[in-house]
Write a protein that binds this DNA or RNA. Structure first.
Lengths: 336, 336
DNA sequence: TTGAAAGCGCTAACAC
DNA sequence: GTGTTAGCGCTTTCAA
């Protein structure tokens, strides 16, 4: 006898009929909700397994008002979304959903335009949202707070009552800064990026705490912040050199790369003439000779945690307001 | 009078009632299907607009058996998925869906495990699939062919009857190779990666066609293929040098980076002692001094095209079996 | 041109 | 413990 053919669309009704029970019973066997006889449940489960029955998520969603999708929202600006950070983070998110009934829907959001996210939320296509990046004055955060939908942000938000998961940037930056100062490099210049990112403010704070911890006074002239373009960074490098920096601390990998290129072009040797460290490590720095002292995070872990938390919220469980993840300080050649 | 508040869930029934028409009429006004009076349609449309009514996609999907989602399937292997290529491609896909009713669902697929893709397809969560990468003997391709679901592959497939979109790697590689040979570099070594990727075979063919076009005989000893690890590549570089290569042609950006690092460590200067070119350009090579001669593609465009094609198939339109996209040959310092 | 009614496949009161 | 029934919000015959 032929095994079950690739039945087009076997429904809960078919299963019920085949087994001579009601749809409700089948539903109960699957969901585990409601009371049902052990033997009956097993019969149903066996049949389902054997015939590869899959509940239609549309119907289920319609009936129980759930979508079984979450939204992964990342910056749509081309120079941002291709940072490996987001891919890894996303993989972390997917890893978690793979073990559940949930799937991940993508949304590209822009600094001033979150219309796609709005559409997804208003079309009720998702049960929750993970914001892959958080800005200081984040449109998406504000929007989601106004809606009745669970969401978590990756990276810290200044907004109140927002569930967030982040690396412990502050302590990481504090630690690496004080280590550097402890090594005797007391003229540390900080070169930082756009101040519209919460994380940059956090890193700056970590930097200052680190200096203080090492007993070094903070010198405003050594802070070069708000650099957006490569040209800005290059200017900052010149500035740092002109005020006699012994070590340049870069707020992130992109800046550090620009700094290193500039130094190489100018014939300034690292660590010979100048030390360099970065508050964020990535493959952008991997190839550099010498290897760069930097803070190492695990983006995938962030994705994991963010997703786990979101699913908990959706399930109605309580969660921490803020989760801080660990880091590693990699001391390399560039500050030797 | 208060403007309409953020009504929780305004449904087609609410609209119908408010307007004193039937749900059918509202449905027709929205879809454009069926006959309806101009004036009636306009009234409905205006009301919908004013009250920000959004049809529930679950209900719509249930009724018309569509999911209004497509699947974006990418490799789940950590060393692969974070290639900027996939992010950019994905952005291209999203760009297209943003202008439609469709959204994008992510699936991570592995070389030997496509269970997540299967789940998404069997749970009927999507109307079609875009495979971000194609392997020679691709599990996902085989699986999807057996299912009755539209899909397109990015990258070429050897399987028959598969809709595919790809860059014109063969002609690109042929062109750059013959240009190099035409410059007088006749001892060209090719260093290539895993042969389980269709694209690598295509590139090899392009390389050989380019040599032939330039009247250079193909020398098997100059082909270093199937290199998986950095160590493999380094060995290949040694091999290439030992057979007297004047120019190393790298099959992709990753290999090229490894080659460049190795050469730098060995004190071999480019282009002084040896020329280097790459069949694929990316930011991995951007920072290199000298700049590397390479083929430039536009991943985002691939995403655009793949998605457009998939949506056409879903809509029942005819599409080309294979779409080949353009390229640019960047001649830089490294082969000067 | 419009409407009534029957589903799409599933869940959840509420009976039995 | 199991079944009946009434939805979830939308589309689509079929009549009017």
């Amino acid at each position: 006898m032929m095994n079950d053919t690739e039945n087009k669309n076997i429904t809960i009704g078919d299963v019920a009929e085949a087994l001579g029970v009601s749809k409700t019973t089948v539903s109960r066997a699957i969901s585990g909700k409601g009371r049902i006889g052990d033997e009956t449940r097993q019969r149903v489960l066996d049949y389902i397994e054997a015939n590869n029955y899959r509940p239609n998520p549309m119907a289920k969603g319609l009936a129980d008002q759930r979508k079984y999708n979450i939204c992964w929202a990342i910056p749509g600006d081309s120079n941002v979304y291709d940072l490996p950070f987001f891919q890894r983070c996303m993989a972390g998110v997917c890893e978690v959903t793979m073990a559940t009934d949930y799937d991940v829907l993508i949304s590209l959001v822009y600094e001033k335009n979150i219309s796609h996210l709005k559409r997804i939320v208003e079309n009720k296509k998702v049960d929750g949202v993970i914001l892959g990046r958080t800005l200081v004055d984040d449109l998406a955060v504000k929007y989601l707070k106004g809606k009745d939908i669970p969401f978590v942000t990756i990276g810290s938000s200044n907004e109140k009552n927002v569930i967030q998961v982040d690396n412990d940037h502050e302590n990481a930056c504090k630690e690496i800064t004080s280590i550097l100062a402890g090594k005797g490099y007391r003229k540390l210049a900080l070169i930082g990026g756009s101040s519209s990112h919460v994380v940059n403010a956090t890193r700056q704070r970590g930097f200052e705490l680190g200096l203080r911890a090492a007993g070094v006074d903070i010198n405003e002239d050594m802070l070069f912040l708000g650099n957006e373009t490569t040209a800005d960074v290059e200017r900052a490098v010149d500035g740092a050199l002109s005020v006699g920096a012994e070590c340049i601390v870069c707020m992130d990998d992109c800046i550090c790369r620009d700094v290193l290129l500039k130094l190489r072009r100018d014939g300034i040797s690292v660590p010979g003439d100048l030390k360099v460290a970065s508050f964020y490590n990535s493959e952008l720095l991997d190839d550099n000779q010498p290897q760069i002292t930097a803070i190492q995070y695990d983006p995938k872990e962030i994705g994991n945690v963010a997703c786990t938390i979101l699913l908990k919220i959706i399930a109605g469980e309580e969660v921490e307001q803020k989760s801080l993840l660990g880091y590693e300080v990699l001391l390399k050649e560039s500050t030797r």
